[in-house]
């Protein structure tokens, strides 16, 4: 279970999140929505302990473990996995190299290279990417869609228990979105991870049904509900659904 309590975060003396609260039970899928610049990506970076984000107060517990006292590596080794909006390119470091090093570092000392390669090959087929991706540099010279599939290749290999998908749908065409959405859904059905889905797109939420939807505005969650809340936003927009206006008045 993920428990975020009274979290206040700042970047360069500017408060980005204030008194932010969120609880996700094991196996639940939560969607986080909000206007651009509301701070949705910030929460992803803070959970992963990005040093650019300073935690002023509050706590983040994952299965009772204090993530704020950990390094990025330790958080990842607790099973947290982030797919960002625009995954960076790392020239000279191949997918296979990174995955092999990570799995070995995580204790798989007797990593069977044959099995490792076989699994990667099978995943490439599943994700409809050439097997040459195995030895390609991480996200290097890949299209937006290829980068997202490449990140899913990492996900399937590292089998995280907490997925943070930060606008994974951005830059995807209809076919790629279908494949990415289906692959994540299959992963959820296989491993039952906690999922925090940050999105603007109805198409993705049609494929990955959230148990809870939260609207982020004014540095905190201002409204939560079931999947129908997302439907309302898609239909009427944030202000059209009177969500933002109402909260502004309340404030």
């Amino acid at each position: 279970m993920l428990q975020i309590k009274n979290l206040t975060v700042k970047v360069l003396d500017k408060i980005i999140l204030e008194d932010f609260n969120l609880e996700i039970k094991d196996g639940e899928i939560h969607a986080l929505m909000g206007q651009n610049g509301a701070g949705k990506s910030t929460i992803a970076k803070v959970i992963l302990r990005d040093k650019n984000y300073e935690v002023v107060s509050g706590s983040i517990l994952l299965n009772g473990q204090d993530l704020l006292s950990m390094t990025t590596t330790e958080v990842a080794r607790c099973g947290v996995f982030l797919v960002g909006q625009n995954p960076i390119e790392i020239a000279g470091v191949s997918n296979a190299e990174m995955l092999r090093t990570t799995l070995t570092d995580q204790g798989e000392n007797n990593l069977n290279i044959l099995e490792f390669n076989k699994k990667l090959t099978s995943l490439c087929e599943k994700l409809e990417i050439p097997t040459s991706f195995i030895h390609r540099d991480i996200n290097y010279n890949m299209s937006g869609g290829e980068k997202k599939k490449n990140e899913l290749l990492h996900m399937w290999m590292l089998t995280p228990s907490f997925l943070i998908l930060d606008e994974i749908d951005s830059g995807l065409d209809v076919d790629a979105l279908k494949l990415v959405g289906n692959s994540i859904q299959e992963y959820i059905e296989t491993y039952h991870p906690i999922v925090l889905l940050i999105t603007h797109q109805k198409a993705l939420l049609d494929r990955i049904k959230p148990d809870h939807v939260h609207i982020l505005n004014h540095k905190k969650i201002i409204q939560s509900g079931d999947a129908s809340l997302a439907e309302k936003v898609f239909k009427e927009g944030f202000s059209g659904a009177s969500i933002i206006d109402r909260v502004s008045l309340d404030a």
Binding site: T71, T73, V75, T101, H154
Partner: peptide, 20 residues
């Protein structure tokens, strides 16, 4: 940060980047 977020420790991540 990207490599650490995949679970590599700082030293291993740094070595991979330098060799790359």
């Amino acid at each position: 940060f990207y490599l650490e977020s995949k679970g590599l420790d700082k030293k291993a991540a740094s070595t991979l980047i330098k060799e790359g």
